[in-house]
Simulated scan of single mutants.
Amino acid sequence: MSLPHCKYFEAGRCRSCALIETPYEAQLRNKQLRCRDTLPSVPDAAWLPPVRSEDHDFRNKAKLVVGGVAGNVTLGILGPDGRGVDLRDCLIQSSGIRSLIPRLAEFLEATGLEPYDVPKRRGELKFVHVTEAPGGELMLRFVVRSEHALDRLRRGLGELRSVVPNAVVISVNLLPEHKAVLEGDREELLLGSSLSMQLGDIALHLQPQSFFQTNTAVARALYAQAAEWVDRVDPASLWDLYCGVGGFALHCASAPGAPVRDVLGVELSEAAVRSARRSAQEAGIEARFEAADATRFALGAAADTVPNLVIVNPPRRGIGADLAAWLEDSGVHDVIYSSCNPESLARDLAAMPSFEVSEARVFDMFPHTTHLEVAVLLRRR
């Protein structure tokens, strides 16, 4: 696999893909070695071959900083001086997103809105988030500082729709504070409500603040691996904790013609739970979803409601001591743990000595960086 030729990296304008000059095979090998070193309790024979990614056109989501000046914007990242660096030809973005960025820049320039100046703490336009579905449909989110920018974008909706005819969701997020975050709490929908990520027979519905893996092809492989493990274990019941819009739960429900498996997804976001319920209904999948904190839900469960298998897909901090202790003492026989942080995974596994890793696999969601996803199948000893 040949590496993409990145003019931004070579010019020193962007170092986000810190490993882009490292041959891809070496990147994969180093990620596998990192996981083996970080997780020494996993037997060598348990490691499956890593799941590869394309080395370009793999990101389904772009989080673009708006920089420059009114009428002449940049879309990319912030430089060390707090000024915008234009990356509209970044090769890791999907081709659909990459072709859209120049048109978005022209639209924003026509609004006359001032990009937010981080050092001076003034301006209106902060970020544009773009997500592309497998079918080419788009979700656009504009993060702005004030009602003035919201009103201007609302008035320009017709023009924007002509510029981006395949946008099915357009929203504006209000972030008035000077914070190092990507969005605020308030979201105003201008068009549509959700983006359908069609993965085989299952459509996952993403609302503007929903989480989804940034690499669609590798996400498919991750869900398929979890489903294969679940089918092998064949539990009568399972919980998907931190379920988001239901990716694992929906893919791990009963196969057609098989005995019905009792599947429950638990997610803090009520909007994500509504999306998961919609996906289950559309696909004819018998799965339930509840809006609750994963740890509190598990700790509050009665002993007779504990499932045979639990799937966890936590944020980078991991599941934490309380949930790890509950899993250790619960009587749950099998656990699938999907992690974006091998270090927190190792800490959580150390707190669950009754489990051993039966199989493990690296999923290269983020080529050219040190980031990765690793999933393990745990069986009680």
Rank of each mutant, 00 (worst) to 15 (best):
F363L: 12
P367E: 08
R361G: 00
S193Q: 12
I97C: 10
P307T: 06
A375H: 08
L323F: 12
R317A: 12
V128S: 09
R232Y: 07
D293R: 05
A298P: 02
A301T: 15
A110Q: 13
L174P: 05
H129W: 13
V144Q: 07
A303M: 02
D37L: 04
L309K: 08
V335I: 13
D37F: 00
H5Y: 13
V273G: 11
R296H: 13
H5M: 11
R278L: 15
V144T: 08
D348Y: 05
V51T: 14
P23T: 01
H205F: 15
V310W: 11
S2C: 01
G96K: 10
P314C: 04
P259L: 01
G112S: 05
V332Y: 03
V357I: 02
P353Y: 04
D55V: 15
G331S: 09
G84V: 13
T305L: 10
T369S: 09
F212W: 11
P80E: 01
S330A: 07
D231R: 15
I97H: 03
Q207G: 05
E137H: 12
P102S: 06
A217M: 03
E188C: 10
C252R: 06
D334V: 06
G320A: 09
L157F: 00
E114N: 03
R232I: 01
M365S: 00
P50R: 10
A375R: 08
V85W: 01
N30L: 13
T22R: 04
G184V: 02
A62F: 02
E54Q: 14
L268C: 03
E356K: 12
S237C: 11
P40D: 05
R13C: 04
G265C: 08
E10A: 15
I20T: 04
N60Y: 09
L125S: 07
E328A: 11
F58A: 05
S210Y: 03
L250Q: 04
R145A: 14
H56A: 13
P315L: 02
A291G: 10
R220P: 00
S16V: 10
L150D: 09
P314A: 02
P134Y: 02
D201G: 14
S254L: 06
P256A: 00
P235R: 08
R154I: 09
L64S: 02
D117I: 11
L250N: 09
R52H: 12
V310D: 02
Y223M: 04
Q198P: 05
P315D: 01
V230T: 00
L75N: 10
P353I: 00
K63G: 06
G82T: 07
S275A: 15
Y24G: 06
N30D: 14
A180D: 14
V65W: 07
V218R: 03
G76D: 00
D201L: 15
L189Y: 12
R154F: 07
Y242D: 03
E282C: 10
D329R: 15
C14N: 11
R98P: 01
D55Y: 08
H178N: 14
G96R: 10
E114A: 12
L157A: 07
G68C: 08
L372A: 10
S95F: 06
A110C: 03
G318F: 01
L108A: 08
P40A: 00
F107Q: 01
G257F: 11
G156W: 04
Q27T: 03
L377E: 03
R296I: 00
V181D: 02
C35L: 06
L48Q: 13
N341P: 01
